[in-house]
Amino acid sequence: MKKKIISLLLVAMFLVSLVGCAGAEEPAEEPAVEENVEEPAVEPIKVGVIFTGSIGDGAWNESGYNALVKAKEDLGIEFSFQESVPVAESGEVMRNFAYEGYDLIIAHDFNYNDIVSEVAPEFPDVLFTVSYGYQSTEDNIAAITSSGWHASYMAGVLAAAVSETEIVGVLSATDSFMGKRMRTGFVNGAKSVNPDIEVLEAFTGSWDDVVKGKELVNGMIQQGIDVILSNSGNVNFGVIETAKEAGIMAIGAPSDLSSVAPDTVIASAVTPSGIYVDYGIRQLAEDNFDGGVYVLGIKEGAEDLIWNPAFEAEFSAEVIDTVNAAKLQLSNGEIEEPVVE
């Protein structure tokens, strides 16, 4: 009997707490209603977004989410999203968004591209964008991607400008077309500053094999590099650690890694994914949405080199100018795309 009373009490407590929370929730909802009353005529654009992982991942997905929040503030869109959607189930999520009346569906990963191609023809009135996508098979699909080498080109320019040994290194995770293009961009950037510079290239074959990344970079250090660009996911942290131990400079990618080792990371070659989200929304907001593949670069802010402020202050004006000049050339389209075998 005693147990029964206790369990009843517990249930009652939960109910009370629920009602309490629900009650507390209501005032928060009211301003939203008022806003609607103010502008009844304008129907906001409804954007639904699908993420592969968590919006708090501190990288790709978070950057995309932040762009959504910003678009809500700047353009007054409405958005909702679903996180951690496996590719195999993403088609259903897209269909749900479409049935729920969303105007634009953003599939925030290139792995969703094939599924978007399958679903988009079913909903000709709904627009789709694929972040970092590679194909557009319908008028209502925009695959928005980046050059894939602008940022690493700038990293190459910087590395060559600050190298004293005239040997620099670049590490990618894969030896895929994208991995090679990123590395070749770095090589071309370095050679544009110093044609005699030696660039060592390597790839880990994994985004997570930290030990292998460390070994590869240690090998490069023995051959005399004094700057390394690492764009290989979690391996980056091992590379930066090795660089720190050996006292050489490192450039991080694809997000700002200066805070990981403020005395070692001189800059980061970033490719913020928010731009893909932003680009599609803006096209729609300006009533300018066309299907197709869009390649963005430094000019559009899809790629950039971000300084570690401590080093930016420390480097000579010549170094800074060289990097800025390269940035200008890239954004003017004066630099040829790297040739990847």
Binding site: V11, F14, L15, S17, L18, C21, A22, E25, E26, A28, E29
Partner: peptide, 18 residues
């Protein structure tokens, strides 16, 4: 009971569980 507990979590996240 599980749904009540779950609802409490949802409420903690600042969302009306109902």
């Amino acid at each position: 009971v599980a749904f009540l507990l779950g609802s409490a979590l949802v409420a903690l996240a600042g969302i009306n569980p109902l």
